[in-house]
Design a protein around this nucleic acid. Structure first.
Length: 326
DNA sequence: AGCCAGGACGGAT
DNA sequence: ATCCGTCCTGGC
């Protein structure tokens, strides 16, 4: 078993956000299955999240709502690390957090004003007012997660993610808590397909290795993708064995944060079908057409609000907080 | 015992 | 281009 790295407190950072800003539902998404990469504490309102700034610089963040501390919209962030950080590195960290949580976007103009006429969205918007589209993961990490999501139940995905993190992730502790930091491509390439199969990753074992190969240290895969158009990047991603349209879309849209797109899968298809038609089973073409008609270029945001609102209103959908159910 | 789950591949049409 | 059997695994 790998030893635990202790992260010590370095500094506090304040990140401002445009108004309205919803701290809780920006950093924490009720529909996401839990991992030991992050944790939202309902009682204290504190959100913990780990991050790898570079190969050797491990970060643990402790975030609270700036509104509570200073009466302004934003995030109050304590930075823990295993090593001292340069000003430049702190800058990169701030940029990552700000980008991941879409802190500077203007959600009034970009979304709320655009869907004023749609009554079905007003409930979700009231509940989640100020929530941003968010994704803290890197492109490599999202591709791993989407591979682990494919063709299985979320409960199994959670088991597989745990197996990967506990075997390849970096164990860290700070502020009296233990977390993992996401493993790197090199961590996986040092392992083997057989080892991943022993960990019950099934046929995904070879996919995860293929993905890792594309993100080796000096391939600059992520940097090169950033230069490309969306379609070009998608085609490039789908050349990786194991990355199909679903994973490529998820990766690119989570990463690039397009709010004009819905990545349909067998799970959200039922949710939108039920939301729009009152039954779960309508064909994809009808669902897709209806979303386009009602929300046009804002359908990605609409989808985000509908799904998170559903999980807020029906906490029993978070099966992982109960003993059974699905 | 068989089917399916927050897809993707490879080969056959 | 679209269709279909197959893939690991575990839960029902």
């Amino acid at each position: 078993m790998k030893k635990i790295r202790t992260l010590t407190k370095r500094c506090k950072i304040i990140l401002e956000a445009t108004s309205p800003f919803n701290f809780k539902y920006t950093v924490y998404k009720p529909s996401h299955f839990p991992t030991r990469l992050e944790e939202f504490n309902e009682n204290s309102g504190v959100f913990y999240r780990t991050f790898r700034l570079s190969q050797e610089k491990l970060i643990g963040l402790k975030m609270t709502d700036l509104q509570k501390a200073r009466g302004r919209d934003g995030i109050l962030m304590e930075v823990y690390s295993n090593r001292s950080l340069t000003e430049k590195e702190l800058g990169r960290l701030k940029e990552h957090v700000s980008y991941s949580y879409s802190l500077t976007e203007n959600i009034n103009d970009d979304f709320y004003d655009q869907v004023k006429g749609d009554k079905s969205l007003q409930g979700p918007i009231r509940t989640l007012l100020g929530m941003r589209n968010s994704c803290f993961e890197t492109l490599y990490e999202i591709l791993n997660i989407s591979s682990i999501l494919q063709n299985t139940t979320v409960r199994r995905s959670e088991q597989m993610m745990n197996a990967m993190l506990s075997n390849f992730g970096e164990r860290v502790t700070y502020d009296g808590r233990c977390f993992y930091i996401f493993y790197t491509p090199e961590d996986i390439l040092r392992s083997s397909e057989q080892r991943l199969r022993e960990l019950k990753l099934g046929y995904r074992a070879k996919f995860l290795i293929e993905i890792a190969k594309h993100f080796s240290p000096n391939s600059y895969f992520e940097e090169r993708l950033r230069e490309m158009s969306f379609e070009e990047a998608k085609t490039k991603l789908m050349k990786i064995k194991g990355v199909g349209p679903y994973s490529a879309n998820l990766a690119l849209f989570a990463y690039l944060k397009h709010s004009n797109f819905i990545n349909f899968d067998v799970w959200n298809r039922k949710i939108f079908s039920d939301f729009l038609f009152g039954i779960e089973s309508r064909p994809l073409e009808e669902i897709s057409y209806e979303c386009e008609k009602r929300w046009g270029n804002y359908k990605g945001y609409a989808a985000l609000y509908i799904i998170e609102n559903l999980f807020v209103k029906r906490p029993e959908l978070q099966y992982w907080k109960k003993k059974d159910g699905n």
